[in-house]
Design a protein around this nucleic acid. Sequence first.
DNA 1: CAAAAAACATTGTTTAAACAATATTAAAAT
DNA 2: ATTTTAATATTGTTTAAACAATGTTTTTTG
Lengths: 230, 230
Amino acid sequence: MKESRNLCDLKSCFLCKLCLPEWLPALQIQKKNFEVKKGEVIFKEGDPVNGIYFVSAGTVKVHKRWDKEKELIIRFAGPEDIIGHLGLGKKPLYPVSATALENTVVCYLERDFFETTLRVNTDLTYKLMQFFANELQDSHRAMRDLAHMSVKARIAQSILALLHKFGVDENGFIALGLSRQDIASYSGTTYETLFKVSNDFIKEKIIEVSGRNILVLNEKRLSEMIGVNH
Amino acid sequence: MKESRNLCDLKSCFLCKLCLPEWLPALQIQKKNFEVKKGEVIFKEGDPVNGIYFVSAGTVKVHKRWDKEKELIIRFAGPEDIIGHLGLGKKPLYPVSATALENTVVCYLERDFFETTLRVNTDLTYKLMQFFANELQDSHRAMRDLAHMSVKARIAQSILALLHKFGVDENGFIALGLSRQDIASYSGTTYETLFKVSNDFIKEKIIEVSGRNILVLNEKRLSEMIGVNH
DNA sequence: CAAAAAACATTGTTTAAACAATATTAAAAT
DNA sequence: ATTTTAATATTGTTTAAACAATGTTTTTTG
């Protein structure tokens, strides 16, 4: 993770959009930008919390590990998304890890400075609280889905979630290439099961796969698979 | 759900403890207390959000349903706990239901008033944001556990969580009686599986069960079960 | 107080999905 | 350039846990 200067435009991230104009110079001084190589870890579960990050460019997976070699991907963060914000809770340790999936640029703020920023900008605190409320809703939905949905439905859901978050490239493929293992970890299943289900989807002409890229041929079928509750 | 007067002491809930003393008279005027009978629904998933609740006495389950007749209990709320706070997110519909597990008293505030309260008390907003951060950490952990832990381990974990949250009565039994179905829903499994695992625990002298009440005989074994995974 | 409805008890069957084993690329690292 | 490591491909076996069926007991309620 290499430091670099002025890669953040102070305009697009969650923080900059809600920042008081008078505060921007302070931000400019305090912020640090880092270039993160593909596969590099930004912070690791259990590490002491130093600060908060905003993704400027690239994509990051936020994941939580279980029992060596098993993990669950909680969410993907792209440009403008916050990561590391759970460090604001009572335990000063990151509860999740964040790893770059492609070459990424992040904007970093020390925890103390970010907390001061929240104190001088109550509207920002309010918005952050609302953001947390939304994340918590998503997380509760995810809990229920992991408890009650079939793996097949969860995989369908993961593919749709990726499609909607990242959109498609010029050929119609989802604009984020992921390893099978990562798609499995995002769906809460194993590589082998993902492989089988994925092959079924290909056979049924629901998706097309080329290397790490996925083309959704039949979005409606995927939605139906997920079920009535969505 | 029957309205009643002055059942809340304005001292013990999350809100009252952090409320500005000058604001308490306003609170006194705005708050409404309700008596909720065992089994009665406080709000239902999908209902429009009217306001926020604080549990004054009794116990409430917060749950999310799937596919008629299947549900996941997200958490239990006891005295001083908030419920309905996810209504603060962008969608004005409750994402979960809340049902009283015993005769319960709740303190209710309309959404607008609560939002005003947050606006005049930025420290409260900050604390609420921190509370959300902690809840989100718990929720992420729960997601991972649902994805990767065995049902047996999850049941062990549920029993320990109930023990730690509610403590024990004079005979050493967990101070909250629950139906098997509710314990199953809290563990993310079916009644039948809970029944079998529960019988195993009894056979191995890890717990003792009397009606709706559970006595933990071997807390250490339960803890080990959660960590080691089989 | 009877009838209906939950909750509880029990066990046997089925299956979804993890686990296991092994082979083949492809991509890093030395 | 070659060793090492990671990602991919494939299929067969095992098992954990849902599903199904049925009966009993306890609550609730009309």
